[in-house]
Amino acid sequence: MSAEPHYTLYHPRWYRRRVSVWWWLRKWSYAGFVLRELTSVFVAFFAVVFLWQLWAVAQGPEAYTQFLARLKTPLFFVLDTVAFLFVLFHAVTWFNLTPKAMVVRLRGTRVPDAVIIGLNYAAWLVLSGAVAFVLLRA
């Protein structure tokens, strides 16, 4: 036999392509997906800062002033800004995806996607307004 690739009749030699490590750079939608997954890190970052804040409050006024001073450093300003942008991306992308997971039927017809997305944004606004009201009242 020749030195050509081994081939058996009825048992094709399949070619399997390996998935590149850089698959997510092939398309903007893939990159957007990976970015959305990454946003969870920044959501966790906000949660950790919040826990730190609670801890500082529990320690007393001195610790809390120190905590506030830390937050005002340029490092935290940059970190917070980046984290805020990612959290915003997280909220917007997930809100836009809700109608895919939630199908609401009213009187036999499907509620349009835009209505479900709109209601999510409305709830977001109302809750943010309520939080702002409680915080700014003092």
């Binding site: 398309k27 939608s29 893939y30 997906f33 997954e37 995806l97 895919k100």
Partner: peptide, 9 residues
């Protein structure tokens, strides 16, 4: 599934 969403597109 982590909801890439390309299948639908």
């Amino acid at each position: 599934c982590t909801f890439v969403g390309e299948c639908t597109k």
